[in-house]
Amino acid sequence: MNVILHIIARDLRLALRRPADLASVLFFFIIVASLFPLGVGPETDLLRRLAPGVLWVGALLATMLSLPRMFADDFYDGALEQLALAPYPLGFVVLGKTLAHWLVSGLPLAILAPLLGLQFDLPGDTLLILAGSILLGTPALSGIGAIGAALTLGLRGGGVLLSLLVLPLYIPVLIFGAGAVDASMSGISPNAHLFLLAALTVGGVAFAPWAAAAALKIALE
């Protein structure tokens, strides 16, 4: 348990020393979300209709953008090898890194999302559901993303390859996340979607770190 906390603290400290990296992910999200009204026109009804999908896809892409850095820095300076040699299961280390990744990507995105939702003229309850669904769904994205990041570690064209591997696996999270916002907007209870999203997150956070740890071992061989 201590290992996980230790890794989280370490990764957070490293991330906070480079605040520009953190901010660029958030600004990417803002820019993508702002491009859509410019592309499809400023009609409020249309934008409100598009908002759940657009904001969720934006959050998904923003999360994905920060994935390559999850292991790369530690891989190149050799810290990852030391972590792999340490007398703890590598899965715990990956779990810590996954949670740290979520804290610097998923969490700020969830806080930012309602603000962007206002631009799309979403009603108050829906804004809450939007933030909640992103809060609930992004840990799964970080978990699945860790597998992709580990598999593409040190490869040429790793970033593009990573998106090719990870995006198809993100589809269920997108469906239920955007579905929850959509449901709340049309006056249906979003609980079913949120429960499924929670299930994906529990499954993703529980199992993905072990698969990612196996992938790291392959990369470190």
Partner: peptide, 13 residues
């Protein structure tokens, strides 16, 4: 997409 991802990954290594 999954097939393409598999091929892309194995060809990149």
């Amino acid at each position: 997409f999954l097939y393409i991802g598999f091929i892309a990954l194995t060809r990149a290594i």
